[in-house]
């Protein structure tokens, strides 16, 4: 018996559309329920006697972070292989930890990235900092430029000025959307920093 017949026979098995829809609906429902359950759990006070203690602790924490410019929202996450082996790490949800401005002059876009927590990990380890993945869209929302390779610049006093050459872009108003930054130190693999940063810029002349 030819195994091609087996392959052909099995490849005819497709998941029916109704089943696909059912699975999507059930998954979304279960995830929603799980989220709701977690929220309820975190909102429930187990005992009234903990309320004063929790109140004093939160007051203490609030007082201790007064004056801090930014609140830490990011966290490290492992990158895994299919079998669960950890092969690297990535820093997630860093949108509130980096401030971005951009201006274009001639054929170059200068992106100024300011680290709001320069003394804390992972930012305190970086020597160079760069944009790893970004998109530039025009006024109609059409993507005019996209890049997924990192463009690095030296990091000084928690600030990096990254120069990106603008290719094939006409003068006009644009929106820059950065999805990934990358930071690196000597002899270290660059660390990807995920988040969403948006800013507008105008290209007046080429």
């Amino acid at each position: 018996m030819d195994m091609i017949n087996l392959k052909n026979a099995l490849e005819k098995i497709e998941m029916p559309q109704a089943m696909q829809e059912r699975i999507v609906r059930n998954c979304n429902e279960q995830l929603h329920n799980r989220e709701e359950h977690t929220m309820k759990k975190s909102n429930t006070y187990r005992s009234q006697k903990w309320i004063p203690a929790a109140f004093s602790l939160s007051l203490f924490l609030m007082l201790s972070i007064v004056g801090t410019a930014a609140v830490r929202t990011g966290f490290f996450k492992n990158i895994t292989r299919w079998d669960g082996a950890v092969t690297g790490s990535v820093y997630e949800q860093a949108s509130e930890e980096i401030e971005v401005t951009a201006f274009a002059d001639g054929g170059t876009l200068t992106v100024s990235a300011t680290l709001l927590l320069p003394g804390e990990p992972p930012y305190c380890f970086f020597e160079t900092f760069g944009v790893q993945s970004f998109q530039i869209t025009d006024g109609d929302g059409k993507v005019v430029m996209e890049q997924k390779d990192p463009v690095f610049s030296r990091l000084e006093d928690g600030k990096a000025s990254i120069q990106i050459p603008l290719e094939g872009i006409k003068p006009g108003d644009y929106r820059l959307l950065i999805r990934q930054f990358a930071g690196s130190a000597k002899a270290d693999q660059p660390l990807t920093i995920n988040g969403i940063w948006e800013c507008n810029f105008t290209l007046s002349r080429l």
Binding site: K77, N78, T80, R81, W82, D83, T87, V90
Partner: peptide, 13 residues
Amino acid sequence: HPSFESPGHEKAW
């Protein structure tokens, strides 16, 4: 919501 090296790893997982 794991992160994988490549689509091949995701499929194998």
